[in-house]
Design a protein around this nucleic acid. Sequence first.
DNA 1: TCTATTAGTGTACCGTATACACTTTATGGG
DNA 2: CCCATAAAGTGTATACGGTACACTAATAGA
Lengths: 280, 280
Amino acid sequence: MAGQKKSEPKARGGRAAKAAPNVLSHEDVMQAAVRVAPELRRRSQLLWDDRAQSTRGPKASLTPDEVVHVAMQLADEDGLSAVTMSAVSARLGFTTMAIYRYFPSKEALLDAIVDAGMGLPPRAPMPRGDWRSELAQWARAKRAMLCARPWLAELPFVAAPHGPNWLSWLEAVIDALSGTGLDSADMGEVLSILDGYTRGASDTAISLARARARGSSAAQWVSEVGADLGRAIGDPRFPHFAALLTTPSTRPTRTMDESFEFGLARVLDGIERYINASKG
Amino acid sequence: MAGQKKSEPKARGGRAAKAAPNVLSHEDVMQAAVRVAPELRRRSQLLWDDRAQSTRGPKASLTPDEVVHVAMQLADEDGLSAVTMSAVSARLGFTTMAIYRYFPSKEALLDAIVDAGMGLPPRAPMPRGDWRSELAQWARAKRAMLCARPWLAELPFVAAPHGPNWLSWLEAVIDALSGTGLDSADMGEVLSILDGYTRGASDTAISLARARARGSSAAQWVSEVGADLGRAIGDPRFPHFAALLTTPSTRPTRTMDESFEFGLARVLDGIERYINASKG
DNA sequence: TCTATTAGTGTACCGTATACACTTTATGGG
DNA sequence: CCCATAAAGTGTATACGGTACACTAATAGA
């Protein structure tokens, strides 16, 4: 019925479309990173440099950090859509255009609050643990961070300019892996697996957190999401999924956090197997 | 309006925030699904019902599907931001407000193009394969679908109303798992692991696809992303990551697709181990 | 002191979503 | 058969968001 329809020009309605073949590698990106690194240190960029230039003119009444702080506050309270230039400026007691003395555009401000919102990853434990428990800690922390600031997940991650905090999260993973004897490319792969799983599998919890931040009760969120899934019941297109919904589980219920933990253990199992195999 | 405010951590240097404890389970959602299912079949909803009601008044010159089609076209061409009510209507040759005869709000239209844009998952192979290869196929297909329509990843996934296509992708996973003897709750977990990994780990490729759709060359994208990462080099805060960037790998380069494949194998390894263990 | 430079303001403009009243068109009940 | 009803598409208006631009005012270096 709805959803798919008669054949139409584009790849819609039918089977999933094919993506363009992908010959790029992450290594290409890394090489680019190395290539441009020297030039970067010269170039100024909001996320990285505290620009303190000529002291001519009136003194600034604000700092970029104060602006970022208020913008994050608004996002925490009412979601990303509450972050408007006028809302930020109003809360600071200035006119809308004043913000533009600190950030050239809203986009630049959003870039800044993304990095600030991520914060720093938890410090590595002393004494250092094994790689597995350190990665697990990292994943839990990242998930907790995303749930605490669900608006972070509303923004494209890779596309955004990456600030120091963002890099710190990456650094922490590589740090934890540095004793494993993995090849550098393999470390990158593990990073991508772990980060991918963590972000992807936190989706439900993030959605709940977002609803909560908007003032809905958890019960309300549950029934909304449940309502979508309930359509499967009795629909001949979704026999297995409907059965999944209606078949009671034989084991004790897992909370969402426990579900994440369960999946994390599977993912780490897979990584562990590879690490052991590449040692042998 | 203003939700609950907690003490705000420092913008820059703070540790990651703690999330609220999470006692909800996916099972709660499922129970809600079962609970509301009977009522749903009565209630009308855009994504699910073709509403063909009273035939009074002038004949409609469009169908919802045509609107969705054009909106998707715009998104494919220039990204989600190109989907405005006036752009859609202009391309159809009508005034802006005409669209509102078909969709009560832009949000409803976006919900519809999300489901339409996902399309259907590839049909299960005949004869059926083993669960592992079927899950791998599924993950590849989902990734390809996301790369073909990178704007899909710009929208919150779980939060959106789930249409029939969305459910079909879920159904396919559960179908592939139905021979494994997994408990129903465990199937849900595996689904979440696989889907989480797939979406999360496709991020880089999606970002590239998005840049490509906007007209940037791959080389340009590479140097942009590389520029962010290059900041790590020479910065004392990121010793391991910088080393990762500058240390050449000892093994042949993996393309992004191969990287995804590598991670997928690890994730499936972890799942396999669990399946084997729960059989024994 | 004069002047270049910069912080913040006020205003104006454009683009976007959408409410509402209006005109037109088809149809089914009298 | 006709007209009341309901729905389709239009036109206009409003509210809001981002931001360009010109202006005022403050400050420090020449």
